[in-house]
Amino acid sequence: MSIADNLRFFQAQLADTSCRLVTVTKTHPVEKLQEAYDAGARLFGENKVQEMAAKQPALPADVEWHLIGRLQTNKVKYIAPFVHTIQSIDSLKLLQEIEKQAAKHQRVVRGLLQFHIADEETKSGLSLAEAQLLLRSDAYRALPHVQLTGVMGVATNTPDETQLRREFQELRGYFEQLKAEFFANQPEFREISMGMSADYRLAIAEGSTLIRVGSAIFGARSYGVAS
Rank of each mutant, 00 (worst) to 15 (best):
E46R: 01
I86G: 00
H84S: 05
F82D: 02
T25D: 04
R136N: 12
M152Y: 12
E51N: 05
D38K: 04
A54S: 09
V109A: 09
A131V: 11
L148S: 00
N47S: 13
A129T: 13
L128Q: 12
V109S: 06
K32I: 03
F115A: 10
H145I: 08
L128Y: 14
D62L: 09
G69F: 09
K77P: 07
V49P: 06
E161K: 15
E51L: 09
K48S: 04
A80N: 06
T156R: 00
R42M: 12
G40Y: 06
T122F: 04
Q87W: 07
M52V: 02
G45T: 11
L112F: 03
A139K: 13
H105Y: 13
E64N: 09
K26T: 05
G153N: 14
A36Q: 04
G153E: 08
L133Y: 09
K123F: 01
K48F: 15
N47W: 08
K55A: 10
Y37N: 01
A58V: 05
V83G: 06
S127N: 11
I98H: 15
Y37V: 12
A129L: 14
K93G: 00
A39W: 01
I98L: 05
Y78Q: 12
A61W: 13
L134P: 14
G153V: 11
A131F: 05
P144A: 04
E31Q: 15
A102S: 15
S127D: 13
L126W: 04
A155V: 02
K104I: 09
S124E: 05
F115T: 11
L143Y: 02
V83I: 15
S127I: 01
V76Q: 11
G40V: 08
A61R: 05
D160C: 08
P57K: 10
F44I: 01
G111L: 13
S88K: 06
V63R: 01
V76D: 02
A102L: 08
H105V: 08
V109I: 15
P81C: 08
L113T: 14
G45I: 04
E161P: 01
L33G: 02
W65P: 06
L112R: 04
A103C: 00
A61F: 03
V49K: 03
H145E: 05
L33P: 10
P57E: 12
L94F: 03
F44M: 10
S124A: 07
A41Y: 01
D119F: 12
K48L: 09
E31G: 04
V151N: 03
F115V: 15
D160S: 05
V146K: 07
N74T: 11
G150V: 03
K32H: 12
S91C: 14
T149R: 02
L113G: 02
T158K: 02
V83M: 04
T23K: 02
A118N: 00
Y140W: 14
K93M: 07
H116C: 10
N74W: 12
V83H: 03
A131I: 14
A155P: 08
Q50A: 13
E31Y: 00
P144C: 06
Q106G: 05
A129Q: 15
I86C: 03
K26D: 07
K32R: 05
D62V: 12
N47K: 03
V109P: 13
S88H: 00
R110Q: 12
I68Y: 02
L112D: 06
L128V: 11
E46G: 07
K26A: 04
L59V: 10
D38L: 03
Q34H: 08
Q96P: 09
A80K: 12
V24T: 11
